[in-house]
Computed example of a mutant assay.
Amino acid sequence: MTNDGSMKITGRIIARAWADEDYKARLLADPATVMEAEGLAVPTGIAIKVVEDTATVQTLVLPARPIDLSDDDLGEVAGGRPSGKDTWAYTRPLF
């Protein structure tokens, strides 16, 4: 789900869920069916989870670890200290 078309569909799904409580309930209960009905193909064997942030609960998504990066590469991607640099990398705060 990284191309422009799928991003537009995802945005439409989110906007509709904000406006329609019944739609949101269906999206939370069975996201793959809702997404497919909106035109997003969900590959066989892939489970989709939708969670809703609230004023008091925020979600941090921990992506799967890439299998082709070294530990040093992962440290740089994750906001660790870049190799060969004297300063710490800065990443945007979550909140």
Rank of each mutant, 00 (worst) to 15 (best):
S6R: 11
T2E: 10
T10R: 08
N3M: 03
K8R: 12
R65M: 12
D72K: 10
L40D: 05
P31S: 13
S6Y: 09
A64R: 13
P66M: 06
A29I: 05
M7D: 07
A55K: 10
G79H: 11
A55Y: 02
K49T: 15
A55Q: 09
V51P: 00
T33N: 14
E36D: 08
L40Y: 08
V34P: 08
P82K: 12
V51W: 02
V34D: 02
P66I: 03
T44P: 06
N3G: 04
I67L: 12
D20T: 09
L62F: 10
T56H: 10
G80V: 07
E38W: 04
P63I: 01
A25V: 03
V61I: 13
G80N: 06
E21R: 15
G5D: 13
I67N: 09
R26T: 03
V42R: 04
V77C: 05
G45V: 06
K24C: 09
P93L: 04
G75S: 11
T10L: 13
Y23W: 05
T44C: 00
L60T: 06
T56A: 04
M1G: 13
V57Q: 10
T56C: 00
I46F: 12
M1Q: 05
D71V: 09
T54H: 03
V50F: 02
P43S: 07
S6D: 15
P31N: 08
G79I: 06
I67T: 14
V77E: 11
T2D: 12
A47K: 15
R26Q: 13
T2I: 08
G45K: 03
D86E: 12
T10W: 05
D4W: 08
G84V: 01
D30E: 14
D72I: 10
A15S: 11
E38H: 11
V34I: 13
L74Q: 04
L27D: 05
P63T: 02
T91Y: 06
V34Q: 07
G79L: 07
R12D: 14
L60N: 05
E21H: 14
E52W: 00
R81D: 01
E76Y: 07
A37S: 14
T44Y: 10
D71G: 00
A47F: 09
A32I: 02
E21D: 15
P31C: 08
L69W: 12
D73V: 04
I14R: 11
R16S: 06
D86M: 06
G39A: 03
P93S: 10
V34T: 07
E76L: 03
D73A: 15
E38C: 07
G79T: 06
R26S: 09
I48V: 15
T2C: 05
A15G: 02
M35K: 02
V51T: 06
I67E: 13
D20Y: 11
L27F: 04
